[in-house]
C-alpha cells in the first residue's frame, strides 16, 4: 500500500478519497502497535527523517517524533527561529543541504502558505506539511477524521461544525477538504470578520448562530482563538467572543446527547472552550492526540516504507 497521489503529503485539498481511506486504514493498524508491550516496529529502520519547524510547536513536533521512532526511523529536529531566517540561507538551500546529508523525508512547518510546496518542487525526498500559514495542516485534518470515524463510523452526511477563526486556520481548511471528500456536511461558525471570502464555494455552509447549528451537530471542532486577532481589530474582546462562540456546558445542553467535541490544541480554557467541556464527557481531545501519532505513523509508513521503487 502507498499513497497514490505522489511522494509528498502537502494537503488534503487534492488528496483523493482512496488515499485518505488508505491512510485511515493504515492508521488503525498503527494504533494497535500502541497496545503492544514493545511499541516499536522496524519498517523505517534505515530512514532519516528531519522535522524542520519555522514556527514553534511542541505537540505536533513531538507527535511526529514519536511516530517516526515507533517505526524505527532516525529523526532529527531543526527548530528555526524567524530571526535566523532573516540572516540565514533560503528555505530551498536549507532543505537541499539536508538532502545532501542523506535525509529521506522532511516534515515542515512554516508560517507562510505554500512553503512545503516550494520545498517539494525542489527536492527528491518526501515532504510532509506539518502546517503552512493559513493553508493546510493535513495530518491534523486526518487525525480529526480518524477520531470522528472511531467515534461514529462513516462520515457521509454527518454534520460537522467548525467553530471559530476560520480565516486564519489551516486546521479548518484541512478539515473542510477531507470531510467534503468523505461526504460529510460541514458548517463553519464564527464572527463574519473571521470567515474567509467565498468559503461557501468549497461546499460548506456558513453560519453566525452557534446555538442554532449546535442542535443537530454530530461533531463540534473548536478552533483556537488568538489574542492577536483581537489586536488586529477582528473582534472586540475575548469575553464577547466566548459569549458568542465559546463552547461551554450550558451551550452543549442544546446539542445531541452523543455530540463529540474536538479541539486541535493547545486550548485556551475559558475562551473558545470552557474547562467543564474540555475535561467533560463529550470531549475527545486526548483521543485526538493519541490518534495523531497513529495517523502520522501511517503517513510516514505509506510515503517511505511502502513498495515504492527507490528514487
Amino acid at each position: 500500500m502507498q499513497i497514490q497521489s505522489g511522494k509528498d503529503l502537502l494537503g488534503l485539498r487534492e488528496l483523493p478519497e482512496a488515499d485518505i481511506e488508505s491512510i485511515l486504514k493504515t492508521a488503525a493498524s498503527m494504533k494497535e502497535i500502541f497496545t503492544r508491550p514493545v511499541r516499536r516496529v522496524p519498517p523505517l529502520i534505515a530512514k532519516n527523517i528531519v522535522t524542520l519547524f519555522y514556527e514553534p510547536s511542541t505537540r505536533t513536533a513531538a507527535s511526529f517524533h514519536l511516530a517516526a521512532r515507533m517505526l524505527s526511523a532516525s529523526v532529527n529536529n531543526i527548530q528555526v527561529t524567524s530571526s535566523s531566517v532573516k540572516k540565514g540561507e533560503t528555505l530551498i538551500d536549507t532543505v537541499k543541504n539536508l538532502e545532501a546529508m542523506g535525509m529521506d523525508a522532511v516534515i515542515i512547518r512554516h508560517s507562510m502558505a505554500g512553503a512545503p510546496h516550494l520545498v517539494a518542487q525542489n527536492i527528491k525526498g518526501s515532504v510532509i506539511n506539518a502546517g503552512d500559514g493559513f493553508n493546510e495542516h493535513p495530518t491534523q485534518g486526518l487525525l480529526d477524521i480518524f477520531t470522528m470515524r472511531e467515534k461514529k463510523g462513516k462520515l457521509k452526511d454527518k454534520k460537522v461544525l467548525i467553530v471559530g477563526d476560520i480565516l486564519h486556520s489551516r486546521v479548518a481548511r484541512s478539515n473542510i477538504w477531507g470531510l467534503k471528500t468523505l461526504g460529510a456536511k460541514v458548517t463553519v461558525v464564527g464572527p463574519p470578520t473571521l470567515i474567509p471570502k467565498d468559503i461557501e464555494k468549497t461546499g460548506v455552509t456558513v453560519s453566525y448562530n452557534l446555538d442554532k447549528e449546535i442542535k443537530d451537530a454530530d461533531f463540534v471542532n473548536v478552533l483556537r482563538i488568538q489574542l492577536e486577532r483581537q489586536e488586529a481589530g477582528l473582534f472586540p474582546s475575548l469575553e464577547e467572543y466566548h459569549k458568542l462562540y465559546g463552547i461551554n456546558a450550558e451551550r452543549l445542553k442544546k446539542a445531541k446527547n452523543d455530540v463529540v467535541v474536538m479541539h486541535p490544541g493547545p486550548i485556551n480554557r475559558g475562551v473558545e472552550i470552557s474547562s467543564d467541556v474540555a475535561d467533560g464527557p463529550y470531549n475527545v481531545i486526548l483521543d485526538q492526540v493519541t490518534n495523531g501519532v497513529a495517523v502520522r505513523m501511517a503517513v510516514l509508513f505509506l510515503l517511505l516504507g511502502g513498495k515504492r521503487a527507490k528514487r
Binding site: 505554500g114 493559513f134 493546510e136 471570502k197
Partner: peptide, 9 residues
Amino acid sequence: GYFSTILGL
C-alpha cells in the same frame, strides 16, 4: 476571493 481562501493567502 475563493482562491485566496483555498490557498490560505
